[in-house]
Every structure is written in structure tokens, then in C-alpha cells.
């Protein structure tokens, strides 16, 4: 696992999208371009992103 992979995995866990195991598995499925996009997102947005589980009182549609 590269440092970039670890940064993405930590990001996914920190915003509540996956547990550590699932984050690591998920990162392995990504292409290099996808990893670049997600690491950019992690670097620029992690402080502003939070998960709302399961459904906040939110509409879809």
C-alpha cells in the first residue's frame, strides 16, 4: 500500500464512509486516476465533509 493509498483510506474512514478494513479493500479497486481524484478531494475537503447515517431528514429528488 502506497502513502497515497493510506491517505485515501484514512480520509474514507475519517468521513465515515467505511471502516478501516473496507477502506483498504476499496482503495485496492481504484485506478491510478481515481486515486488521484480522491486524494485531491481528501487534501482539500476532508474538514468539510461528514457522513449522515443512515438518512438524515433529507430528501433525495
Amino acid at each position: 500500500m502506497t502513502n497515497k493509498d493510506k491517505v485515501i483510506a484514512v480520509f474514507l474512514v475519517s468521513v465515515g464512509l467505511f471502516s478501516v478494513c473496507n477502506a483498504m479493500q476499496y482503495v485496492k479497486t481504484l485506478s491510478a486516476a481515481q486515486k488521484t481524484e480522491l486524494s485531491f478531494l481528501a487534501a482539500n475537503s476532508s474538514q468539510n465533509i461528514g457522513d449522515s447515517e443512515p438518512l438524515r431528514v433529507v430528501k433525495h429528488g
Binding site: 464512509l17 467505511f18 476499496y26 481524484e37 465533509i49 433525495h60
Partner: peptide, 27 residues
Amino acid sequence: VCAIQAPLDLIFLNKLNLAGVSVTTQK
């Protein structure tokens, strides 16, 4: 509020240039 099927669905935020806006993800 962003509904997502997978974390990759969030990368459109990179283009939106929304610094400082809070984003709530919804699985």
C-alpha cells in the same frame, strides 16, 4: 447533501470549487 453509491461519487466536488461549504454524505 450528497447521495452516493460509492466514495468515488464525491469527486465531482473537486470541480465545484466550494471551499468552506459543509458537505453531508448520504449512503
